Simulated scan of single mutants.
Amino acid sequence: MSIQAVGQNSTQSVTTPPSQSAGGTPSTSKTTSTSSPASYTVSISGAARAALLEATETSVQTAQEANRGDLQAKRLLAKEQASKAL
């Protein structure tokens, strides 16, 4: 993922379509209510988004960050090197 993906709007809407019977026509309901399909909104916090980016970054990105002085990336590279030495 790129840095650009972090700046995008973190709210997404998902709308579920009405259920249909096997014949392809909308199923009938015993209630006479004509409500719209349910919709759900999911929000992802900035901290969760940052954690996701850290967890999914490639080894190349980690090496680049370590070369720029990122302490977390340096620790991760040292840990990977130690595991390879065993």
Rank of each mutant, 00 (worst) to 15 (best):
L53H: 04
P17V: 11
T56K: 09
T41Y: 13
T25N: 11
T15E: 00
S29L: 06
A38V: 08
T16G: 06
S21Q: 09
T28M: 15
R68P: 01
T34D: 12
S45Q: 05
G46K: 15
G46L: 13
S36N: 05
A38Q: 15
S35K: 06
A50S: 07
G69Y: 13
E57T: 07
S29E: 05
S33P: 00
P18I: 04
S13K: 11
P37N: 05
A50V: 11
I44T: 14
N67Q: 15
N67D: 10
V60M: 01
L76P: 01
A38T: 06
A51V: 09
P17F: 08
T11Y: 11
A22P: 02
L71W: 01
L52W: 04
T41W: 07
K74T: 02
T62Y: 02
L71P: 04
S33N: 08
P26H: 11
T41G: 10
K30M: 07
R68G: 04
S13L: 11
E80V: 01
R75W: 03
A73N: 03
A73S: 13
L76V: 03
S59A: 09
A66P: 01
G23Q: 11
T62D: 02
P37R: 03
G46Q: 14
L52Q: 06
L76A: 04
T34E: 09
Q61M: 12
E54Y: 03
